[in-house]
């Protein structure tokens, strides 16, 4: 039963850095080529494993930012200064041609199916935009008509990852909305407050068919409980939290 033996088995593969793009002061996008990558679904993760010269290994899980395709994929990594993995991945030393190990894709819960019917609400806090961006990009690539609204909370306009692309993709049923919680550029007409029940009630007056919330733990807890308080059915809300040990 050779086929059954490999079913679901994860193997570490070598990823080669094809390009590095700065996104914000703290976040970078890594374009990776992975031999034998089986493809992924929007919202899935991969595990990264770094091995030092003395054999010490550090491992972290990162959301995939790109729409599904097999020959390459993108991660967007925010640098956490006391982290073990992100200072290398999002630091100044990583170069085109560098290699490290990855395995995946993993995760089947926080996943968007492009053939699912009904409107979608995406709620992002900070770098929680990353897995949601994979969904936005897949929707755009497939010219999906699914009405999709994104509420993206960031500290300032300079902290908004993918902002040019998000603005470019607006239209054809996709509506990105931004709330800037600490500082706003002159003439700012978007939201300037924290994501709470009143803001979510404005953005989603009726419960969408599916809601995805991703961000730091307190953000996710607040947004998800506010949505339930607004009588959104809990089974339609999927959450993904990340915290300090995610660095």
């Amino acid at each position: 039963m050779a086929g059954a033996a490999v079913l679901g088995r994860l193997t570490w593969r070598v990823a080669t850095v094809l390009d590095v793009r700065p996104e914000t002061a703290r976040a970078k996008t890594l374009v990776l080529g992975v031999d034998g990558w089986p493809g992924h679904r929007a919202g899935q993760h991969l595990d990264v494993r770094l091995t030092s010269e003395d054999g010490y290994q550090a491992q972290r899980s990162y959301s995939i930012a790109s729409a599904p395709r097999q020959d390459r994929l993108e991660l967007t990594v925010e640098r956490i200064d006391d982290g073990e993995v992100s200072p290398y991945l999002a630091g100044d030393d990583l170069r085109e041609g560098d290699r490290f190990e990855v395995r995946g894709p993993v995760g089947g819960y926080f996943v968007w199916r492009s053939d699912a019917a009904g409107d979608v609400l995406l709620v992002a806090g900070g770098s929680g935009i990353v897995p949601l961006m994979a969904m936005v990009r897949q929707r755009a690539e497939e010219t999906s008509p699914v009405p999709t609204r994104l509420l993206y909370s960031a500290r300032s306009w300079d902290d908004v990852i993918y902002r040019d692309e998000l603005e470019r993709l607006a239209g054809a049923g996709f509506e990105p909305l931004f709330t800037l919680t600490r500082s706003q550029p002159a003439g700012w007409t978007g939201y300037a407050r924290r994501v709470d029940a009143s803001l979510l009630g404005e953005v989603a007056p009726t419960p969408p068919a599916a809601t995805f919330v991703c961000g730091p733990t307190p953000f996710v807890e607040a947004a998800a409980s506010a949505l339930v308080g607004l009588r959104h059915p809990p089974e339609r809300i999927k959450t993904e939290r990340f915290g300090p040990t995610g660095g």
């Binding site: 079913l7 679901g8 088995r9 994860l10 899980s61 395995r103 995946g104 089947g108 733990t217 939290r241």
Partner: peptide, 20 residues
């Protein structure tokens, strides 16, 4: 604090399939 999504790979090692 994280959630089960962050340990999907480890759980797949344990169960041999995705359980998230």
């Amino acid at each position: 604090m994280l959630d089960g999504n962050a340990v999907a790979g480890l759980l797949q090692e344990v169960f041999g399939t995705d359980v998230t």
